[in-house]
Amino acid sequence: MGSKQLEKAIKDIGWKRTVDINSEKIKLACLIREEDRRPFQADWWKGKQSYIVAVDDNGNFILRHCGGYIFRIHPKSESEEVLAKSEGEFLSMIYE
Rank of each mutant, 00 (worst) to 15 (best):
G2Y: 11
S3W: 09
K8V: 05
A9R: 14
A9P: 07
D12R: 14
I13Y: 03
G14L: 14
W15E: 07
W15F: 14
K16W: 05
K16L: 07
T18V: 13
V19G: 02
N22Q: 11
S23F: 15
K25P: 00
I26E: 02
K27V: 12
C30H: 13
C30F: 15
E35Y: 10
R37Y: 08
R37S: 05
R37H: 10
R38S: 10
Q41T: 15
Q41P: 05
A42Y: 02
D43F: 08
G47R: 07
Q49V: 09
A54H: 00
D56A: 03
D57G: 06
D57C: 02
D57T: 08
N58C: 04
G59R: 03
N60D: 07
N60I: 00
N60E: 06
F61Y: 10
I62A: 04
H65S: 05
C66I: 14
G67H: 09
G67A: 12
G67S: 11
G68R: 10
Y69A: 06
I70V: 12
F71S: 05
R72V: 12
I73G: 04
H74S: 08
P75D: 06
K76M: 13
E78F: 07
E81M: 12
V82N: 13
V82W: 13
K85Y: 14
K85I: 11
K85E: 15
K85T: 15
S86R: 07
S86P: 03
E87A: 03
G88M: 07
F90V: 10
S92K: 15
S92D: 15
I94M: 10
Y95Q: 08
E96V: 09
